[in-house]
Amino acid sequence: MSGIIEIRKIPRSRWRRKLSSERAFDSFLQLAMLTGTLLLWEWLSTALHAEFWVSRPSSVAQAMLVWARSGNLASDLKLTLTEAGIGFLIGSLAGAIVGFLLGWVDRLGRLFEPLVLSLYTLPKVALAPLFVLWFGIGPLNKIMFSALLVFFMVFFTTFQGTRQVDRDLVANARLLGASPMSIWFKIAIPFAAVWVFTGIRIGLPYALIGAIVGEFVAADSGVGFRIKEATSFFDTSAVFAGLIVLMAISMVLLGLLKLIELRLMRWQNPGDIITTEIGA
């Protein structure tokens, strides 16, 4: 019987090549659009005398240079990233654990559902002043606020995801001899991991939001503080410089996360479908 079933991989190299040339062209288009936008911005703000309101790319670049030369850019970045980073770690860890527990243990989920739903609709930013009261005006306040925002994002996705763990799969594992421990670690947690990652991806920008909002409310340094300070001096160029720095941080972080996710979740996108062909 063995040897009758042959394995054949679909030849896909040709359309893959076509796809990659299309992708290269798309990247070129994106670059062109970016350059176009910058040029248009520069030209329009000069032509319409709107520099006070929207600055222009060359002034923004200059403001960035001044910021970097003063040594503040490095220290602001370091502070904001530390706050957001620690907040992110605390928030996603707590969110994943609590989300998993409430999602897995039906009774806990039912018990806490009203609380969870009422917190879900609460605009978390409204808590920022309270956090100043609780945690002072130092970095701890920003860390906790970051953690809070990230917690909710990770918590909700993990909670929803864990509730979708295939109960048949669990029953089957039990029949295969799995202990409750094994079911947690070999079925439920890997199943929920996908959702934890989704939550983390959604939550990552919120870590930064938490730190920045915290710095807006009360701080004496950090990227958020710098943006607020520049606004109060009507220094639009410096404000935009701050925004661009934030954007760059977000992009780098998301890229990093994507990389980790690809590594850990390789099974979700393992490659070509293997087809079997039954020979004569």
């Binding site: 019987m1 394995i7 390789r266 099974w267 393992p270 479908i273 293997i274 087809t275 079997t276």
Partner: peptide
């Protein structure tokens, strides 16, 4: 008759 498929993921396999 699945020798050679050890490292494949379920998503890559047919129902049979």
């Amino acid at each position: 008759g699945l020798t050679g498929f050890e490292r494949a993921y379920p998503k890559q396999l047919s129902g049979g």
